[in-house]
Design a protein around this nucleic acid. Structure first.
Lengths: 216, 216
DNA sequence: CCTACCGATCGGTAGG
DNA sequence: CCTACCGATCGGTAGG
């Protein structure tokens, strides 16, 4: 505990630790975050770093929660008010590309890093990483399905296939930006995503589905 | 040194260490390989593990060399004799998908893992990881360029864009197999790659390039 | 390729 | 939120 300090000061200390830990995690991996590293960068003692979280694993779970909330704030919140379906899906992809291109985390997107880092491991930290990725893929697939039903995408489109491919584009972009320092990568990602999402229904014979715009 | 043993025995010991290290690296990351872990699994002492390599970093470089040679053996060697261009590119992608689907490394493709693990780090180990990935992208782009010149792909095709997207498909596949245990993932990857590589030249007016099959 | 060590660092606890 | 510890493990070396 911190007998000499107010609750507000304790909360600020906690946030200082988390900010530092998130930065380290994006570079060294979530499992590569150590109390000693954070202590050296924040001026706290190692015990002062671990204290507010109890154990390092709890601190790592908190790091993933921060990563998820930053991702939501940067990618999903700006577009969540748009109409469900293709408009929102396209805008989300654009926000995603922009987020990765801006390199919000110095070592690349923490969600991507964590998904590779924990893919073969088990435990609460890897469970949370898995849930984050699965949740985002579900969001992408759901809006794809709405787009299909609204007649914005061809009925032969497979929502899970779209989510699969969008994730691949994002991972390739993350790698190109962070590993290869390729400034052209965001444009490549936009081109790939645009081709994937420009698959309007083919106007075959008697192909009028539903949602006639003249309806009332 | 190993005064009581022949050179052949020393080489076998070295291989035992490497095999174990590669397996651990695919699960815990190349940086997550420790001498103690390998010692416990092989029955050797920690000093016996480090000895043949000098330092752990040298051992890690050897792990990456094994990963590269396994990748070459599984993906490139089977197709390297095919005609350059689209036939070889398509066969390489199929071999790549098959390799990832078979989960040759228990924790997923070491090249993919290493590319994320080291993307923001510097040093000889990350340099070697970078060179592996860059080399493979170059191979993919080169065969794409041959395919364009041979009239197998539309001239508007960008070889680096194709390499970028193929890498994304492979990363998405690796993630789907190892993290999400999605048995349908290889089929998804094949569908995505097929769409990417089925872009024949458009027969516009006077669009006959060169390489007329009736030539002699 | 072993034992026996080295200093450094790990996560975590006790007590203030 | 600090100091002062705990046992365990890290990479690496010496010497046989």
């Amino acid at each position: 505990m911190s007998p000499r300090h107010t609750a507000a000061e304790a909360a600020r200390t906690r946030q200082t630790i988390l900010d530092c830990a998130v930065e380290l995690a994006s570079v060294h991996g979530v499992g590569g975050v150590s109390a000693g590293d954070i202590a050296a960068r924040t001026g706290l003692s190692r015990a002062g770093v671990i204290g507010p979280f109890g154990t390092m694993d709890e601190l790592r779970l908190a790091v993933l929660a921060v990563a998820a909330s930053v991702f939501a704030e940067q990618v999903w919140q700006p577009v969540s008010g748009l109409p469900a379906g293709l408009p929102r899906l396209s805008a989300a992809v654009e926000a995603w590309v922009s987020y990765l291109g801006r390199r919000v985390f110095p070592g690349g997107c923490l969600m991507t890093t964590a998904s590779i880092e924990f893919d073969a491991l088990e435990g609460p930290v890897s469970d949370q990483a898995r849930a984050m990725i699965d949740g985002w893929r579900t969001v992408l697939a759901a809006d794809t399905e709405v787009a299909i039903r609204a007649g914005e995408l061809d009925p032969s489109t497979d929502p899970d296939q779209v989510a699969f491919e969008l994730y691949g584009i994002a991972m390739a972009l993350n790698q190109a930006v962070v590993l290869l320092h390729d400034a052209a990568a965001p444009a490549r990602a936009r081109a790939a995503a645009a081709r994937l999402l420009s698959n309007p229904p083919k106007p075959g014979p008697a192909s009028e589905t539903r949602g006639d715009p003249t309806d009332d």
